[in-house]
C-alpha cells in the first residue's frame, strides 16, 4: 500500500443516483489518525459520503484518493478490506450465525476457502475474534446466536467484526441513532479509544452535533450534498450547527 500521510483527499466529489444529486462538489481532506464527525440533517448526503469513502460507491464526478490510491484499484487488487472498513447503520450481520462467527467473518479477506469453512463448521476459535469481542465488551455473548442478541449487542458484534478486519480507516454510519444518551456516550468513547489505541483514522456520521463536538477532533457539516462548514471541534460555532439543520422551508431561495 501507499505511504501518503492523508487518509482521504476528495476533490470536487459529486455523486448522482439516476439523475438525483446526492453529493455535489465536496472537497475534503482527512489526515491519518484524525477523527472526523459528519453532521447534517437527514438526506444531506452523510451516508452516501461514507459509502464513497468505503469504496462501495464510485464518484460520478471528481476524484477520491484513499491513502493516496484509487479505491477502485485497491478493490481490484483485494487491498480495500485492509484499508477501510464500514460499520453500516443496520449492522448487516448474519442473524442465524453465532456472535463468534459473525466476528470471524471480518477475517474472510485473509482466509482461504478451506480455513474459513472449517472455522464455521468445526468448534475452532480464532484468538483474534475472542480478543476483539473482549475489547468491545461482548465476550460473554461469544457463543450466542445473533438473532437472540439485543440491538446494543449486535452493534458491538459488528464493531468487533470490523476490528478483526483490521482496516486502517474505520467508517461508522450513525452509531448512536438507536441508543439512549448514556449508552451513546459509552459507545463514542469506545469508538474513539479503539481508533486512538490502534492509530486508526475514524470517520463517523452523527445526528447529534453536541456529541460530535465532544468526541471528535473535527466536525464537518453537510447540507444538501455540500460541505457547509469544516473545522476543529472547538472552532465550530453553535450558529453553524443550527444553520446546517435549518429546515429548507425557512430559506425560500432553496425551495424547488
Amino acid at each position: 500500500m501507499t505511504t501518503s500521510t492523508k487518509a482521504y483527499e476528495l476533490r470536487g466529489l459529486g455523486v448522482s443516483f439516476s439523475g438525483v444529486r446526492a453529493l455535489d462538489g465536496v472537497d475534503l481532506e482527512v489526515a491519518r489518525g484524525e477523527s472526523v464527525a459528519l453532521v447534517g440533517p437527514s438526506g444531506a448526503g452523510k451516508s452516501t459520503l461514507l459509502r464513497v469513502l468505503a469504496g462501495m460507491v464510485a464518484p460520478t464526478t471528481g476524484t477520491v484518493r484513499l491513502l493516496g490510491g484509487d479505491p477502485s484499484v485497491l478493490r481490484r487488487r483485494g487491498e480495500l478490506p485492509a484499508a477501510v472498513g464500514l460499520m453500516p447503520q443496520s449492522f448487516d450481520l448474519v442473524p442465524q450465525l453465532r456472535v463468534k462467527h459473525n466476528i470471524q467473518a471480518g477475517a474472510l479477506g485473509r482466509w482461504g476457502a478451506i480455513r474459513s469453512t472449517a472455522a464455521l463448521l468445526l468448534p475452532l476459535e480464532d484468538p483474534r475474534a475472542r480478543e476483539a469481542a473482549a475489547r468491545v465488551g461482548i465476550e460473554e455473548r461469544f457463543h450466542q446466536r445473533v438473532s437472540r442478541c439485543s440491538g446494543g449487542e449486535r452493534q458491538r458484534t459488528a464493531l468487533a467484526r470490523l476490528l478483526v478486519q483490521n482496516p486502517r480507516i474505520l467508517l461508522v454510519d450513525e452509531p448512536v441513532s438507536s441508543l439512549d444518551p448514556a449508552r451513546s456516550e459509552d459507545l463514542l468513547e469506545l469508538l474513539r479509544r479503539l481508533a486512538v489505541e490502534d492509530g486508526r483514522t475514524l470517520v463517523a456520521s452523527l445526528h447529534s452535533p453536541e456529541l460530535a463536538r465532544r468526541h471528535f477532533d473535527r466536525v464537518v457539516g453537510l447540507r444538501e450534498g455540500r460541505v457547509a462548514f469544516d473545522g476543529g471541534s472547538s472552532a465550530v460555532t453553535t450558529e453553524q450547527l443550527t444553520d446546517v439543520y435549518r429546515l429548507v422551508d425557512e430559506h425560500p431561495s432553496d425551495s424547488r
Binding site: M56, P81, G85, A105, G109, S116, R161
Partner: peptide, 13 residues
Amino acid sequence: SSGASRWQELVYG
C-alpha cells in the same frame, strides 16, 4: 466489503 470471496459469501451468508 470485509474481503469475502464468493464461496465465503455462500457459506457465511
